[in-house]
Design a protein around this nucleic acid. Sequence first.
RNA 1: CGGGGUGUGGCCCAGUUGGCAAGGCGUCUGGUUUGGGACCAGAAGAUCGUGGGUUCGAGUCCCGCCACCCCGACCA
Length: 410
Amino acid sequence: MKQSQLFTKTTKETPKDETSFNAQILIRAGFIDKVGAGMYNFLPLGLRVLNKINNIVREEMATVSGQEVLMTALTPKEVWQATDRWDNFDVLFKLTGNDDKEYALGATHEEIVTPLAKKFLCSYKEMPKSIFQIQVKFRNEKRAKAGLLRGREFIMKDMYSFHTDQADLDEYYETVKAAYFRIYERLGLKDLTYLTYSSGGAFSKFSHEFQTLTEAGEDHVYICPDCQVAVNREIIAEHNFCPVCKRADLTEAKAIEVGNIFKLGTKFSSAFDMKYMDQNGDSQEVIMGCYGMGPSRIMGTIVEVFNDERGIIWPESIAPFKIHLLSLKENKAATAIYQELINNNIEVLFDDREDVGAGAKFADADLIGCPYRLVVSSKTLERGGVELKARTSDQMEIIPLDQIINQFKR
RNA sequence: CGGGGUGUGGCCCAGUUGGCAAGGCGUCUGGUUUGGGACCAGAAGAUCGUGGGUUCGAGUCCCGCCACCCCGACCA
């Protein structure tokens, strides 16, 4: 991508109606744009990052046999009445069609996925199965806040699994837990992310959250110094020791929830009368699990965690581009390098702008935060190459022109 | 939903006692620049969130409403 053609541009001004770091810097760098409280447009750079997060999530859900679907975001009133949530789920956005029929914008999809699965899963031979989607969710939060960390409209991956018995759910649940940690590892968040025991809400005694430590978070967790495990403050009164090693001297920390998995049991299969036929020809209730994760919130979390005073420092796995190539009055030589990178399928943002000073280009590169910066200038060309600098380091080195591809090709 | 705060060109903001709405960023034109957000000259761009009220006169004072931010409550 040539930066001269990029739809967005950066700004020095901090938006006045944002105080959260993730929103301020993502807006300044041109990744997102604010429409209203908890509502953001994703712009070309931001969408590239979001899609990369989504694709990592997709790949890992495939490893636990999740099949991707896309369900409706518009949902009929009747399905929510079936579970008694139309009147008891206060984050539902409700609306009325022109025939006075009422709808809700999807806040979560148990009410849609259960009737759907009921149409296909009728026999013990057809289970277990799990399906997931990556979709916009709507929740009428009384107070949206903290940029991408709590929106009224946000992106969510929600997976639902269907089992014949509790043991099968329990086993599957553990494999999904492991897949979640692989996702956080690939996103660079693993060391900061804790499996957290928390309230089970309406469906079970406990659930598991994945909490990433950051001062920007709104949850308080008590972490075990030995295990990568924590207890949410919600339940610390009844569970004030490490669930794994039983230590009692847990340390309080602020964190943001980046995933939440539940064993639903028969709550929804029973509400929608979803049953299957077992080996003996008897009708049995289906056992369900659900597994949530918010890619847009994760994007905000990563910005909160990986940054310095100059801007974002994207992990390579989700950076909008691997390389930011800056031309300082040497567009001819730089264009040749740009073409060669493109020809080798190496993602590059090429700052070919001719009316922008060197200082502004450096500032933009630091703000946007691609992992590697390549500078082409008369100085570097005299020394036979280009200057390479990692966003995470102050070290610079000259790479000979014929070695650039080797440097980045894996 | 309670409490607090803020609304002034696209963005950040100044605006004194009620008296011609200032500056910066960005944009456009011309010129000079080019290794850490350059400089000079010129130009365009505002029904001051919105509706009422007070006044000769309201960005400024009063009342209602709306939006956004923060704290709290809430948060499958």
